[in-house]
Structures are given as structure tokens and as C-alpha cells.
Amino acid sequence: MSDGRQTPSQTVGPFFGYALPYEKGWELVPPHHPEAIRVHGTVFDGNGDVVPDAILEIWQADSAGVMSSKRGSLKPDGYAFTGFGRASVDLAGHYAFTTVKPGATSAAAAPSVLVTVFARGLTHHLFTRAYFPEDVQAHSTDTVLAAVPADRRSTLLSVPDGPGSYRFDIRLQGEQETVFLEFNE
């Protein structure tokens, strides 16, 4: 019963696969878009085993650094960039989005994609950010990166692995555990 206080989270469970994914949820732009990049990776558990039942959302600015407020995030019209995507991992724990590289949303911020992880076994989703390795200069002024202990910062950097392709693996636990973020209100 609601008492006006925050409603607690519960795990997404194992059976979201016929409900949450929607058509082309992983395509923020079509693959033939001139600026299309691929952001992809694998989700691992604390044993280093792949997590085959996770679902990820990304949320980002367009290439000019503007956050969209356009409706149509579930059924994009093919022209407007909504900045939102959702993809389940496959049985090998792998996910992939086709998007554009975001611009920076402020002078100090480095370009980044907000990544949200849901999975069976995860009672409350996790937020992280994927940054791009080439923005070295901007990384030094980014306030979120500055809050992350230096020896763990690399977990937030995607790794270029081909033309227009960036790999961003997510380690829920263990060595090289991804840095997860909690936001002040």
C-alpha cells in the first residue's frame, strides 16, 4: 500500500523477454546512417561467466550534445533522434546498439552514454556511463569521472574495436568490476 514514500525496486526477473524488448529498440539510428556507430559489449557476473538474461537501456544526447524531448521513443519515426534505446543480451551475454556518438552536454562534460542494467538476480537496476577513449582532454574536466577513483576509471571507457565500433563490457562483480553510479537528488 502506498504511504507516499518511494516505491521499492524489484528484480526484472527472467521472463521480461516477451514484454520489454520492442522493435528495433537497439537501433537509435538506422545502420546506414552516415554517423552510425556501434556500442556493444558483454555482461559478466562475479565468476566471469556471461549473464544471458540482462536487459540494458541507453540514454544519450544527439551528436550536437542536445538531449531530446521528442515523444516516440518506442516507435521512432525514422527521422527524429530520441536518444533512448533498449536491448536484451543474447545467450552469450552480448548486447549491441546502433547509435551516434553523443556530443558533450556542457563545456566541462565529456561525451557519454548513460547505461542502465537490469537482470535476473539484480534486485535494483544499476546505472553506469560509457565514455569514449578519444576524448582524453574532456575526461580531465568531467565531474563524474573526477569522482571515480583513478584506478577504476578505465571501467567506464569503451574500447574501440573496429571502424565506428566501441566495446563496453559490463562486469557486475569481481576484478575490474564496472563502476556503478548513484545520483544525488
Binding site: 557476473d45 562475479g46 565468476n47 561467466d49 549473464v51 540514454w59 544519450q60 544526447a61 538531449m67 531530446s68 524531448s69 521528442k70 515523444r71 516516440g72 521513443s73 518506442l74 516507435k75 519515426d77 530520441t82 536518444g83 533512448f84 552536454t105 556542457s106 562534460a109 557519454s112 548513460l114 537482470a119 535476473r120 538476480g121 539484480l122 534486485t123 544499476l126 546505472f127 565531474t143 563524474v144 569522482a147 571515480v148 577504476r152 557486475l172 562483480q173 569481481g174 568490476e177 564496472t178 563502476v179 556503478f180 553510479l181 548513484e182 545520483f183 544525488n184
Partner: peptide, 30 residues
Amino acid sequence: SSLLRHPTHELVRVDPEEIERVSPAFGHTD
């Protein structure tokens, strides 16, 4: 199932920036 799927480090607490302060928009076309 939570045993191997929870982070062992404290979450890093930061101020939300514009990305986190806005949300995707959905509407009756969706």
C-alpha cells in the same frame, strides 16, 4: 541469483547532470 550479480564496491555517488535529469518522452504515438 544475486550472489554473483551484485557489485561489491560502493556505488560512486555523483550529482546528476543533464543526461540524468531528463527522461525519454513517450506519447500516444508509442
